[in-house]
Computed example of a mutant assay.
Amino acid sequence: MTGFHFKKILVAYDGSELAEKALKAAIKLAVHDKKIELHILHVLKPLPIFDYIETGVENVKMLRREKADVMMKEIKESLYGMGNPIIVEIVEGHPEKKIVEYAEKHNCDLIVMGSRGLGGLKEAFLGSVSHYVVQHTRIPTFIIK
């Protein structure tokens, strides 16, 4: 990506293997310039109603949020020595839309994400998050396979 100068890189992170690869790729880009902000976004997507029946809506939401908080705290701590500004965010909603919204709202100039996330095979039939992001943003998007 010679010739490009990035100021804010957004990594869409869901804990999957490809999200890990995307994070590593973004780190490689950012480590050369300590002014580059690395934004790491995790989206808690809505769950189908049947997931709430046995444990209750609030319990499920609380457990998912706690798990996401721990995951993102670990990432931020692991990147502490990098020297770049590291911003971690957790938002709720549909991942594809939230990634595009976040990137635009925060004036990111690159999005880095995996080609597939934790959705796996289901995404192949319903349309993937990465495909949506590429189609709905003007921000350059680096898809990791």
Rank of each mutant, 00 (worst) to 15 (best):
V31C: 11
K28H: 14
E104K: 10
E66Y: 09
F6L: 07
A30V: 10
I86A: 01
A26C: 09
G93H: 02
P85F: 02
K105H: 08
V91F: 01
K122T: 14
K35C: 06
K24E: 13
V112M: 04
M113T: 01
F142D: 03
M62D: 13
I111Q: 03
I75V: 11
V43Q: 01
V57S: 12
A30T: 11
K8M: 07
G114Q: 01
H131N: 14
K24S: 12
Y13I: 00
L47P: 09
G119R: 08
L63I: 09
S78Y: 01
L44G: 05
V91P: 00
H106M: 12
I111S: 01
M72E: 04
E123H: 03
K67S: 13
I49G: 12
P85I: 01
V88Y: 05
T141N: 06
S115L: 03
I111D: 01
I86N: 00
R65W: 14
S78Q: 02
Q135V: 07
L110A: 08
G83R: 02
M71Q: 03
F125E: 07
Y13K: 02
K76L: 03
E66V: 07
L126N: 08
S16L: 01
S115A: 13
K21V: 07
V133W: 09
E104G: 07
K97D: 12
N59Y: 15
I111L: 06
G127S: 10
G56F: 03
I139T: 04
R116E: 01
E54Q: 11
P95A: 06
L18Q: 01
D51R: 12
T141P: 10
L10M: 04
M82C: 08
R64D: 11
K45W: 09
K61I: 11
R138N: 15
K34F: 13
K24D: 12
K7V: 08
I87L: 11
V134C: 15
A124D: 08
D109F: 00
A30I: 09
I90N: 05
C108Q: 04
K28D: 14
K7G: 11
G81T: 03
E104R: 07
A22R: 04
Y52T: 00
P85K: 08
L41N: 03
E17H: 10
V134F: 11
L121D: 09
I99C: 04
H106N: 14
L126K: 08
M82A: 09
C108F: 00
S128K: 06
L47G: 09
V134E: 12
D69K: 11
L63A: 15
F142S: 05
M1T: 11
P95I: 05
M62Q: 14
F125Q: 11
E17A: 14
L79Q: 06
H5E: 15
L121H: 05
N59K: 15
I99G: 00
G120W: 14
K28W: 12
K35W: 13
K145N: 09
E101L: 07
V60G: 11
L10W: 03
K105E: 11
D51M: 15
K98I: 01
L126T: 14
I143C: 02
G83F: 02
K24P: 09
Y13W: 07
L18N: 02
V100R: 00
M71A: 10
I111V: 06
K24Q: 13
V31K: 13
G120D: 07
G81C: 05
E101P: 03
Y52I: 01
H136F: 10
K7N: 11
E66C: 10
G83D: 04
E58S: 14
F50T: 12
E123Y: 03
F142G: 05
E123V: 02
